[in-house]
Each structure stands twice: as structure tokens, then as C-alpha cells.
Amino acid sequence: MSRQRSEASRVFGERLRARRIELGCSQYDIAHLSGVDLANYGRLERGAGNPTLTTIVQLAMTLSLDVGTLMSGLADAGMLPETERPYSALDYIAARRQQEGR
């Protein structure tokens, strides 16, 4: 059984599942209509997958959702494990200024 990747992955998967159920479709239906592999789609709903941008856009279109609806809030604090949190450009600039004594 695949493990959940992050809180962001879990929430993304919940959004996919909720919309699919709201539409009365099966996982097979959504995977087929969007051109996404069925097993991959199942992993996404369980929060265990890591979709590409293309896959996210395909699913949003298939589910008649705005991509922003699927992605909203997924970059908030606590959504990614600390070990996977990217070092932002603002973090870099602040550290550089501190090092330079500004």
C-alpha cells in the first residue's frame, strides 16, 4: 500500500475525490477522460502520488474545475514536510543580508 506523501498531497487527493463523487463518476471514468493512468489516478486520490503540471491541468479540465481550486492553500505552512520545504528566494536574500551585516 502506498503512503501519503504530504498534507498537501492528502488535501489535493481529497479535492479530486470529492469532485469526482459530486459528478457521480468512477475513478476509471475520470482517469480515462483525462488520459491519466488509472493506477496513477488512484494514488493521487489517496495522497500518494506526485502529479506533473500537465496531469493537474488535465484533471482540472476533466473535473470542470479551475486549477486554482485544486491547488489553493497547498503551499501554506505545514502542508509539506520540513525536509521537502523549498528554500525560497526571500529566505536566501534574508540570509545573505544577515551574513553581510545589513
Results as ranks from 00 to 15, higher is better:
Arg43Leu: 11
Arg20Ser: 03
Val67Gly: 00
Gly47Met: 01
Arg19Cys: 00
Gly35Phe: 07
Gly13Tyr: 03
Asp37Tyr: 10
Pro51Cys: 06
Thr62Asn: 01
Thr54Trp: 12
Leu38Asn: 13
Arg17Val: 05
Met61Arg: 14
Asn50Met: 09
Arg20Gly: 01
Thr54Asp: 14
Asp37Lys: 00
Thr52Gln: 12
Gln58Arg: 13
Val67Arg: 06
Gln58Thr: 05
Ser26Tyr: 09
Tyr28Ser: 09
Ile56Phe: 13
Arg20Met: 06
Thr62Ala: 10
Gly49Trp: 03
Gly24Tyr: 08
Leu53Asp: 04
Gly47His: 03
Thr55Pro: 00
Gly47Asp: 04
Leu33Cys: 13
Ser72Arg: 13
Gly49His: 06
Ser64Gln: 15
Ala48His: 08
His32Gln: 15
Met61Phe: 14
Asp66Arg: 09
Ile56Lys: 08
Leu70Gln: 07
Met71Val: 06
Asp29Phe: 14
Glu14Met: 11
Glu45Leu: 07
Thr52Pro: 01
Ala48Pro: 07
Thr54Leu: 12
Met71Trp: 07
Ala60Lys: 02
Ser26Glu: 04
Arg19Lys: 12
Leu65Asn: 04
Thr62Ser: 11
His32Asp: 15
Met71Ser: 09
Val67Ala: 15
Glu14Cys: 05
Asn50Cys: 12
Leu44Val: 08
Arg46Met: 11
Asp66Ser: 11
Cys25Gly: 08
Pro51Phe: 04
Gly13Thr: 01
Tyr41Cys: 04
Ser72Asp: 15
Tyr28Cys: 01
Gly49Val: 01
Thr62His: 04
Leu33Thr: 09
Leu63Ala: 06
Leu44Asp: 00
Thr54His: 14
Thr54Tyr: 14
Thr69Gln: 14
Ser34Val: 04
Gly42Cys: 10
Leu23Phe: 09
Ala60Phe: 10
Val57Ile: 15
Gly13Arg: 01
Met61Trp: 12
Tyr28Thr: 07
Tyr41Phe: 14
Leu44Ile: 07
Leu63Arg: 03
Leu70Pro: 05
Tyr28Asn: 10
Ala31Tyr: 01
Gln58Met: 06
Arg46Ala: 15
Glu45Ile: 08
Asp29Asn: 11
Val67Trp: 11
Leu33Gln: 13
Ala31Arg: 01
Phe12Val: 04
Val67Ser: 09
Arg17Cys: 05
Arg19Val: 02
Gln27Arg: 13
Ala18Pro: 02
Pro51Tyr: 02
Asp66Gln: 13
His32Arg: 06
Ser26Leu: 06
Thr52Phe: 12
Ile30Gly: 04
Asn50His: 14
Cys25Trp: 14
Ile21Thr: 07
Leu44Gly: 00
Gly13Ser: 00
Gly13Met: 02
Ala31Gly: 01
Ala48Phe: 10
Ile30Glu: 05
Ala48Gln: 12
Thr69Lys: 08
Gly47Val: 00
Ser64His: 15
Gly68Cys: 08
Leu65Ala: 00
Gly49Ile: 05
Gln27Asp: 07
Ala60Tyr: 02
Asp37Gly: 10
Ala39Val: 12
Thr62Asp: 03
Asn40Gln: 13
Gly68Phe: 06
Asn50Asp: 15
Ile30Ser: 07
His32Leu: 04
Leu33Trp: 15
Thr62Arg: 02
Asn50Trp: 06
Leu65Arg: 12
Asp66Cys: 09
Ser64Trp: 07
Arg20Phe: 05
Leu44Met: 11
Gly35Ala: 02
Gly13Gln: 04
Leu16Val: 00
